[in-house]
Nucleic acid binder design. Structure first.
Lengths: 209, 209
DNA sequence: CCAATACGATACTACATGGTTCCGGAACGC
DNA sequence: GCGTTCCGGAACCATGTAGTATCGTATTGG
């Protein structure tokens, strides 16, 4: 009797993992350029210098391919184990958004815009949230802020869950609607005039007329 | 000589303006449900109980139709001439986002998500910004905040341009990515813990250890 | 060396869809 | 009434594309 009909194919030529990477990268490129629907499997294959058979051997469907490409992109993002630690929350936040290569960030945000169109069409995708690039950024913000709280740097009652969403949501708005990335000037204003005040203890100092 | 080859057709049956509205409404519905690419002209005609001829007599192309539908939706939005005036900025902000029927807001935000996919594919659209539903909300925020400033209610040096973007950008993030609208609890937290502190004079009261 | 599997390339199928055209009928102005 | 323009409906066409199949070649293990 055959051990297993689905034996992992020990014989024959092996799959080239480099092809996986090339196809996923080409997918992200096109996602950023033309969106989910503008992306055709033929174009992906063409750009990756791959045959469509090679693609469909790995991903049974265009949707699977794009989802995996997004996961791939996400994995290259922020490493929650290696967050900046400058001693102050302000320094940490600036450092977190600092090092990103501008062109690379732009590509990622545009790809994210491409994903938005997929959510409308692929049923049951909105519920998982797996596709969001912004979620790890929010998580990173939370970690930095919680650390600042244990240092006593911010209010013990600060709404960290909310504050951690401010910068990422602004980034999302600009990326998806305005099609522009956050620049350093805006980042400074956000940190100093919005995020830090929101976390501080200070009573809202409305003019007491 | 003919007065004008394109004379507005004084003879014959007149166009039914109700058809315009029905078609635009159907377009927005579908835009919210399936996105720009999931939207087919046949589906729009079907839902509006209209013939495709009736549609193409008005809009030469699917893109024109969708853009006009978005403009139509935008026109039904915030009236900058009739902003709330409760006496306090806090009251004004809460009133601004208050009256919206939740289901209606949800529909609008989902439609906006559908528009995002169009931006990737229709050339030269991202530059105009005409499509953004959020921009009038930002403008309304700015007006309310400037009024508060002239009342001396907030700091004279407050960064209104930035603060006015906070709530709308959060709404955009939630609508486009999370697919959820802003509820009253979140609105309260945003106003009291983020927006108002950002506009206040108070020095950032970081714990002086 | 050989069977099995991978690869890029290309041809092919099945189907959806944007846009046009035509129909029979209804509303309008003259 | 009579021609013109509108209406909903449906047929029609050209194009694009997801997914499959095939071909000749390159790698692998036995």
């Amino acid at each position: 009797m055959p051990e297993n009909d689905l034996s992992p194919a020990t014989r024959g030529r092996k799959r080239d993992p480099e092809r996986d990477a090339a196809i996923l990268e080409a997918t992200i490129d096109l996602l950023a350029e033309v969106g989910y629907d503008g992306l055709s499997t033929a174009k992906v294959a063409d750009r990756a210098q791959a045959g469509k058979g090679t693609m469909y051997r790995r991903w049974p469907t265009k949707t699977d391919l794009v989802l995996d490409a997004v996961a791939h992109m996400k994995a290259q993002q922020i490493d929650l184990e290696a967050l900046p630690d400058t001693g102050s929350l302000r320094g940490d936040l600036l450092a977190l958004f600092q090092p990103q290569d501008s062109a690379q960030v732009d590509r990622i945000l545009r790809a994210m815009a491409g994903v938005v169109s997929m959510i409308s069409q692929v049923h049951g995708l909105a519920e998982t949230g797996d596709y969001s690039i912004f979620e790890p950024w929010i998580a990173a913000n939370s970690v930095l802020m919680e650390r600042a709280r244990t240092r006593g740097e911010i209010s013990s009652t600060a709404d960290v869950a909310l504050a951690a969403q401010i910068i990422p949501s602004m980034a999302a708005y600009r990326a998806l609607i305005l099609r522009v990335a956050i620049d350093r000037d805006l980042l400074l204003r956000l940190v100093d005039q919005v995020v830090l005040p929101a976390l501080s203890d200070g009573p809202v100092n409305l003019a007491s007329s």
